[in-house]
Every structure is written in C-alpha cells, then in structure tokens.
C-alpha cells in the first residue's frame, strides 16, 4: 500500500469543500478522479501530494515513508517562457536523487533520455520547451515525472487540449504504467476518456457535497452521473468501448456490462431508435 486517506477532508482556510474521503492506493492501481470543472478534483490531488494540508483527517504512508511520486501538472501551469530544453526539464525529475549542490551525472542524463524515449519524444531532447506542441509538452512533463522512477504517477488533466488521436495515444501510454506496477492517479473532467482505462473511480461533486469512491463498475452508473452533472447521463457499450452520453446512447449502443440494471433506473429511459445527442 502506497497511500491511505483516512476520513480526509480537503479544502481551503479550514473550510472543507468535500465530505470525508477514504481511499487506499496500492502498487499498480489505476484510479481516475472525475467531476465537473471546479468540483474539487485538483484539491484532492494537491492534498494527497502534500501541497495542501488536509482540513481534517490524515494522509498516511503505510510503509512508513512517502512513496516516490511523479507529478504531471496541467501543462498550462508550466511556464514556457523559461528557455529550457526537453532534456533539461526531464532532468529536474531526478534532482531529488542527485542531491543538493551536485550536478547531474551521466547516469542521470541516461535515465532522462530513457524517460523521453519511453514517452516517444527522445528526438526532442534538445528542443526548447516553448517550441513544442501541446502534446509534446505534456509528454515532456510526463517524462520528467517518470525520470524520478516513481511508484505513484499523478496526472492532472493529461489530455486537455489534445485532438482525438493524440488523446488516445496519451491514454494508451498511461494505461501501460499500472502494468509496470506504477500506480496512476489521473484527474480528468473528460469522463468518457477515463471510463475505458481506470480500474477505480472517484466521482467528485462539490455542489452536492458528495464524493463516491469505488471500482468503476460500481461508481459509473447512469443515476450517479445524472446527479453529478445535473443532466440525464447514460453509460453504454459501443463497439466494446464504454461511452458516456448526455440524454441517451445512440442507436446501436447497449448498456455497458454490469450496468444494465442501473441504466434502467438511472436516466430512466430506454434507448430510443434515433440518434442521441452524444457527448464523448
């Protein structure tokens, strides 16, 4: 077990914005935090990372020491005016291993190069960060997180602003990490993107002061999503992929496995024989 949240309340200035959260993150876990914009997703992550103190409760490290964490912030948060190359930024992920007052060693350069190769941009090692595309910057930040050989990778909106192909490639890349025993905690407001990848889900609803935590099959239900988004939301299986729709699934879509019963109670309607207002 890497991190345990015991009845942790998150918020600012002593004021909780969400109810107490219980969560245990083990090696190789793949957890998504999903909710509308401004719902408190990033606040949970910042509390887990130690960037914000919990209002109540405790963030515990069962092994007695903090796991190695690789954090990939939203790429808009990273200042592109600094004249740094991809390699220089990735090397920062190893600074805590290098030690204070010491220069990166050849082994650190090798590890940074390997991290760049892992995310498929080793050819951009000497490209200035500001000259990279949005997707390349995101991969650079991910390589920086990987360079520190993390046990837990925390990704805040890793696919924001990407086109469909780039988003798919990024999510496929992320999905590999839990198989390598790297736990992944991914924040996203794009529910449909997350739904096909994560094993567990945290649904966050600041307006209704609710947090739901559990395996995706239990949490991703029409009823819960409809309440969360305050709109009739349906989950359906389209060509083997879990898809989320506002109103109703399109023709040919079937309720996702294990969700049939909940689907009937959730949006409250059977899929009609017409094209729905799909939103992926």
């Amino acid at each position: 077990m890497l991190i345990e949240l015991g009845q942790v309340e998150v918020g600012y200035h002593g004021q909780a914005i969400l109810p107490p959260i219980d969560l245990r993150l083990a090696e190789g876990a793949f957890v998504g935090i999903v909710g509308p914009n401004g719902s408190g997703k990033t606040t949970i992550v910042r509390t887990m990372l130690g960037l914000l103190p919990p209002v109540r409760g405790q963030v515990r490290y069962p092994r007695g020491e903090r796991p190695r964490i690789g954090y990939v912030p939203q790429r808009e948060q990273t200042d592109s005016t600094w004249p740094l190359t991809g390699l220089e930024i990735v090397l920062m992920g190893r600074y805590h291993r290098i030690g204070v007052g010491r220069r990166p060693r050849p082994a650190d350069h090798k590890a940074a190069g390997a991290a760049l190769a892992k995310v498929g941009i080793d050819d951009l090692a000497h490209t200035p960060f500001h000259a990279m595309s949005g997707g390349q910057r995101q991969r650079t930040l991910m390589a920086r997180a990987l360079a520190g050989e993390p046990e837990l990778l925390v990704l805040d909106e890793p696919t924001t602003g990407m086109d469909l192909v780039a988003e798919r490639a990024m999510l496929d890349l992320i999905a590999d990490f839990p198989q390598q025993k790297i736990a992944v905690l991914m924040v996203s407001h794009q529910l449909a993107a997350v739904a096909n990848y994560v094993h567990d889900l945290i649904l966050v609803d600041r307006d209704r002061f609710q947090v739901q935590v559990g395996p995706i099959e239990e949490v991703l239900t029409n009823e819960r999503l409809s309440k969360l988004y305050n709109a009739p939301v349906a989950v359906a299986d389209v060509h083997g992929h879990r898809s989320v729709f506002i109103d109703r699934p399109p023709r040919g879509g079937t309720p996702a496995r294990g969700l049939s019963a909940l689907n009937r109670e959730g949006a409250g309607e059977r899929a009609p024989e017409r094209e729905g207002k799909g939103k992926a």
């Binding site: 990372l49 130690g50 960037l51 903090r66 964490i69 954090y71 912030p73 948060q77 990273t78 200042d79 600094w82 740094l84 920062m92 992920g93 600074y95 805590h96 290098i98 204070v100 007052g101 010491r102 220069r103 990166p104 920086r144 520190g148 925390v154």
Partner: peptide
C-alpha cells in the same frame, strides 16, 4: 554556482519541487 540547480528548479516549477520533497 553551488545551488544553481535548486534555484532554477524552485523558480521554474515550485509545486513539482515541493512534490519531490524540496
């Protein structure tokens, strides 16, 4: 000269530096 790496890191990305225990 001694702490250039650390000064650049905390100036460029304070939050990342904090998550790494700086």
């Amino acid at each position: 000269a001694l702490f250039r790496k650390e000064f650049v890191f905390v100036s460029f990305d304070l939050e990342m530096a904090r998550t790494l225990g700086y």
